[in-house]
Design a binder for these strands. Structure first.
Length: 336
DNA sequence: AGCCGGCCACTAATATTCGT
DNA sequence: ACGAATATTAGTGGCCGGCT
């Protein structure tokens, strides 16, 4: 069963039980709008882990095609033309030379000049949050724990709205040996190749991709497990290392505190487990693909997130209220 | 009044957890 | 292994009621 189908099923099941405007409702609404767009028989398929030589031997296209979703209920011609719209835009980047990357850098700095007013204010003004926020679950794999000394070797993103190009995944060339392959099974041979992008090449593409998913004047909320202590600091460091800034409309949410809240609410000891694995067990969620591969973790976390927000009766605005920004992380560090 | 024990709130130190 | 957040434990001080 496809991931999105599962998401949709959850939403359908949850809505009648939770009348308030929950995140589930938000996703439900999104799914419905997709249904309207794509027809009743829509199905979304995440690429399997064997696709495009991810287990080694990358083909020429080192970005696992962001066209990793497939929409049914459409005529072949429509689908074809649609997948070339965004997919092409991104994949063209993939093949682009350094000169085109420079152009993208200019675009990126334009992007940074965009000033976003406080999202909390928008919530207070009762703006329709769903129309403003794109929720993206993400995960990274790295060569180790130290954000200073180690490097990212894989990134996966999933836009929970679904639809075409809703996932993005790539290996990253760290330019060094991978010593912890026993964890994620990503080897030096898989990433230290000329056809695997380095971080400085990937960032503009990543920014471009996220931009293609965001709503006009909207925010992008990135969700990851242990984001505050691991994924986000890593990302911030990698951006900084290559003189990029995290866009101001990017918000981050950590699912680990949510898990703690749920366990507390249920009267369980928090020490009983807030790892992604423990949460999957708790919610009876099966891993699609290998655990500790970025996309597999993202797929699992997407489902865990739905369950957590449902248990906490947390509407999208509540999730937004729990967001943090990279600047908060650095200022908190300075305080100490 | 003086003493004692129990309770609560707070702080500091230590342990655990989590990501790869 | 690293580092941050959080949980847990231990220690401290203040307050109160009961007792002599």
């Amino acid at each position: 069963m496809s991931c999105m189908r599962i998401l949709m099923c959850f939403s359908i099941l949850q809505v009648p039980r939770c009348r308030t405007h929950t995140l589930a409702n938000f996703w439900w609404e999104s799914s419905r709008s997709l249904n309207r767009t794509c027809g009743k028989n829509s199905s979304f398929r995440l690429l399997g882990s064997k696709a495009n030589g991810m287990e080694g031997g990358y083909s020429k296209r080192w970005i696992r095609r962001p066209v990793s979703t497939k929409t049914g209920g459409e005529s072949q011609t429509t689908r074809k033309s649609k997948s070339t719209t965004i997919g092409h835009e991104i994949l063209d980047e993939t093949f682009s030379t350094r000169s085109t990357l420079n152009i993208k850098k200019t675009e990126v700095s334009d992007f940074h000049r965009n000033q976003y007013c406080d999202i909390q204010q928008k919530i207070a003004e009762n703006e329709d949050i769903a129309k403003l926020v794109t929720v993206i679950v993400f995960d990274i794999e790295t060569t180790g724990f130290s954000r200073q000394n180690e490097r990212i070797i894989e990134i996966a993103l999933q836009d929970l709205q679904g639809g075409e190009n809703s996932t993005f995944q790539t290996l990253v060339n760290p330019g060094r040996h991978v010593t912890n392959s026993d964890i994620h099974h990503i080897t030096t041979h898989m990433v230290c190749r000329p056809d695997v992008p380095r971080m400085e090449e990937l960032i503009p593409i990543l920014l471009q991709y996220v931009k293609s998913r965001q709503k006009p004047g909207g925010y992008v909320m990135f969700v990851a497990h242990n984001a505050r202590n691991f994924d986000v600091p890593f990302l911030v460091n990698e951006f900084g290392r290559h003189h990029f800034e995290i866009p101001q409309n990017w918000l981050f949410v950590d699912t680990r505190p949510l898990a703690r809240e749920v366990l507390k609410m249920e009267g369980l000891k928090v020490t009983s487990g807030t790892s992604l694995e423990a949460l999957c067990k708790k919610y009876n969620i099966q891993f699609v693909g290998k655990a500790h591969r970025a996309m597999a973790d993202v797929t699992a976390l997407s489902l865990v997130l739905q369950r957590l927000t449902f248990d906490l009766k947390l509407p999208l605005s509540g999730l937004i209220a729990r967001h943090f920004t990279p600047s908060e992380l650095t200022s908190a560090k300075k305080k100490k």
